[in-house]
Design a protein around this nucleic acid. Structure first.
Lengths: 116, 116
DNA sequence: TTCGATGTTTGACGAACATCGAACAAGTTA
DNA sequence: TAACTTGTTCGATGTTCGTCAAACATCGAA
């Protein structure tokens, strides 16, 4: 559990962001984080094994879509909305709105705290 | 060279569009077509073999990003801007603007008619 | 009909990807 | 110290992807 690497805002690449969000699980994760609130790793519920979930979170992180914070032995994930909006104005909003409107990236939800 | 299949506007999937545009060559092609003008297949110049170019154009077509029209033995490609905008408002504009701003998808250009 | 131009399809290849279970590392708690 | 919790990393597997060359199909021209 070493400190994860995050690309600087100016190093975020469009192709990477697009292909990162081009996966159903990752799009679902982004959609889950769309409200800007930070979520605990354990709250995230995706229809994949935890090692796979870890992989997807890494792809999102490496692409610059999310930021992971570590607190003790647990992690918290948050969308880098401001950074993305600074670099690609309107992109994230359009993607998230489209995902919401068409229920894309389904299968990803919250655990414990219940839906909503 | 049989008539290619195009998805109906309501069948266009967000994940497919995003991952279609997540490739440098395809993003470059989309960027090239961003002005809405129709281009001849032969005008498209990408740093790949023609079979590969054909493949990429098919991915874009299958994802609903472009439309291919056939005239005799040659093809013309155009961006399905209105369709995409109807289904995912603002998405294509944000992607193309971001690509333009950061010169993403480079290596794709025009042949014959010269740049511009 | 024969030739040439234009894309598409096929077959093959290595690289990248999504996925899993198991082993591991780092904190927290008993 | 000894568990236990929480994610990450590793190794393996099967799939998809990007790429090319070559063969093919189709249309127009000679």
């Amino acid at each position: 559990m070493k400190q994860a690497h995050h690309p600087a805002t100016e190093d975020v690449a469009l192709e990477e962001v697009l292909s990162a969000l081009g996966d159903p699980v990752r799009l679902g994760l982004a959609r889950l984080l769309a409200d800007g609130r930070e979520r605990g790793w354990g709250q995230l519920a995706a229809p994949v094994a935890k090692s796979t979930l870890s992989h997807h979170l890494r792809v999102l992180r490496d692409a610059g879509v999310t930021r992971t914070r570590q607190e003790g032995t647990r992690c918290f994930v948050v969308l880098r909305r401001a950074d993305l909006d600074a670099r690609f104005p309107g992109l994230l909003a359009a993607v998230l709105e489209a995902a919401e409107a068409h229920d894309a990236g389904a299968g990803v939800g919250l655990r414990g705290t219940g839906p909503a």
